[in-house]
Amino acid sequence: MPVRLGDPETVRLLRRGDRVDVIAADREGEARVLVSGARVWRDPGGASGSDAAGAEEAGGALVVLSVPRRTAVRLAGAGTRSELAVTLW
């Protein structure tokens, strides 16, 4: 599932295989965990190896996560209403 993060610099910290929690922050500043333990699959630039530097070329804040289908639907919906962030495990 491609996920656009609110902070483009965060993508550079992620590496294939990392586990992350995806957090949504609404306009009032309330945050909630949408997904816990999602695995970083690759960045859209195709740099699926050691780092996600290629993601900067593809918009700067996009990362691909491996999640179950139902979770992907939840992420897609939240991404249209909230700013998304990740925390590394």
Rank of each mutant, 00 (worst) to 15 (best):
G45M: 02
R16E: 04
R32D: 04
A72G: 15
L13R: 13
L62S: 13
W89R: 15
G37F: 01
V22Y: 13
W89T: 11
E30A: 05
D21M: 04
V86A: 09
S48Q: 07
V40H: 09
S66N: 00
S48M: 03
D51G: 07
R15L: 07
V64M: 02
V22A: 14
A72F: 05
G46N: 09
A31D: 05
V22I: 11
D51V: 00
V73D: 12
V86D: 13
G54E: 05
D21F: 04
R69T: 06
R32I: 06
A76H: 04
G77V: 02
T71A: 09
D43I: 05
G37S: 04
R12G: 15
L5T: 00
V63Y: 06
T10Y: 06
D18T: 07
L13Y: 03
T87H: 01
M1A: 11
R4W: 10
W89F: 13
G77N: 14
A76L: 08
E57S: 11
E83T: 13
W41T: 07
G6P: 00
R19L: 12
A24E: 15
R16L: 00
V67T: 11
E9W: 13
G46T: 08
R74G: 08
W41C: 06
S50T: 06
G17F: 03
D18E: 09
R81M: 11
E30T: 04
S50G: 10
A85I: 02
D43R: 07
A25L: 10
E9Q: 13
R12T: 09
T87L: 04
P68Q: 13
R15H: 14
G79I: 03
A31L: 08
P68T: 08
V20F: 01
A47Y: 00
